[in-house]
Amino acid sequence: MDPTLCRELHHSVASAIGEGARGIVLTGSPRIFSAGLDVPYLLSLGDDRKAITEAWQAFFGAARALAASTVPVVAAITGHAPAGGCVYALCCDYRIMAAGDFRIGLNETRVGLIAPEGIQRLMRRVVGLHRAERLLVSGEMVDAAAALRIGLVDELVDMGPEHDTAALVARAHEWLQALLALPHDAMRHTREIARAEVVESLQPEHVDLERFVDAWFEPGTQSALKALVAQLGKK
């Protein structure tokens, strides 16, 4: 996810709601829901703190749009969802993940990044305090079965040997349709109350972007990020 994609996602959520959408399905490509932020692009920005800050602002802007959506949003997690992909999934109302050897989690510490308080709140909300601590501090990525077991995702769908996303997206639509069949005002207002802490978690004071960007430029972080890019280049 580079800034352009994040801004387009933000715009797409707003446009869909403005055009009368009653629900939204957020999905990705077969095998990869989202690989997170475009680290090679971010590293290409070098020491340009303004550009780095704007890139992260675009990322968090899209996260806030998902979290504050006035209509339900389902994450149809078609494959791996590390870091930023996991954050976006956590901002959704419901998470349906492809069954199989796919992993999801917040692996920021493994590349020298701090998981902001707001992001930690999102994780704690779905898996509980102690388990969230263990996952966040270690940067562990869990497989789909474990994600279901600990509540990080709500259900799994088998995409078959061809990794066809159609069944997964169809199940997301099915879940939305069941929710939207409820008395509208009661569902809408109850949802708004229930999700207030999701919106609150992503307020600027809980993200502390300046501190996050400071950490980005730490030598250890830069070394870890460059090693990650080198590893990806070998695959």
Rank of each mutant, 00 (worst) to 15 (best):
M1Y: 11
M1C: 14
P3L: 08
C6Q: 13
E8Y: 03
E8L: 09
H10F: 10
S12M: 09
S15G: 02
S15E: 12
A16P: 03
G18C: 10
E19D: 12
R22V: 15
I24L: 15
P30L: 12
R31S: 07
I32R: 06
I32P: 00
I32W: 00
A35Y: 06
P40S: 07
L42S: 10
L43S: 03
S44D: 13
S44F: 11
S44T: 01
L45S: 07
L45V: 02
D47C: 11
D48I: 02
I52R: 09
T53A: 12
E54H: 10
E54S: 13
A58S: 14
G61Y: 04
A62I: 04
A63P: 00
A65Q: 03
A67S: 09
S69W: 01
S69H: 05
P72F: 04
V73F: 05
V73P: 00
A75W: 09
A83K: 00
G85F: 03
C86Q: 05
V87W: 02
A89G: 04
Y94C: 02
R95T: 04
R95W: 03
A98W: 01
A99C: 04
G105Y: 03
L106F: 11
T109Q: 07
T109M: 06
R110S: 11
V111P: 00
G112C: 11
I114H: 13
I114W: 11
I114K: 11
G118W: 07
I119A: 07
R125D: 14
R125F: 11
V127Y: 05
G128M: 10
G128D: 06
H130A: 15
H130D: 15
L136M: 14
L136G: 08
L136N: 09
V137T: 13
S138N: 09
E140N: 08
V142A: 06
V142F: 00
D143F: 02
A144V: 12
A145N: 04
A145D: 04
A146I: 07
R149Y: 05
I150N: 02
G151C: 10
E155Q: 14
L156Q: 03
D158T: 05
M159K: 01
G160T: 08
G160K: 06
E162A: 15
A167W: 01
L168N: 03
L168S: 05
L168T: 00
V169T: 01
R171W: 07
R171P: 08
R171N: 09
R171E: 13
A172M: 08
W175F: 11
W175N: 01
A178F: 09
L179W: 09
L182Y: 11
P183F: 14
H184L: 08
H184P: 03
H184V: 10
D185W: 14
D185E: 15
A186M: 12
M187F: 15
R188V: 14
R188S: 15
E192D: 13
E192V: 09
E192T: 12
R195L: 15
A196G: 05
E197M: 02
V198W: 13
V199L: 10
L202V: 10
L202K: 06
Q203A: 13
P204H: 12
L209H: 12
D214I: 03
F217T: 04
F217D: 08
E218V: 13
G220T: 05
G220M: 06
A224E: 08
L225V: 03
A227I: 02
A227G: 09
L228D: 01
L228T: 01
L228W: 12
L232D: 14
G233W: 05
G233H: 12
K235R: 15
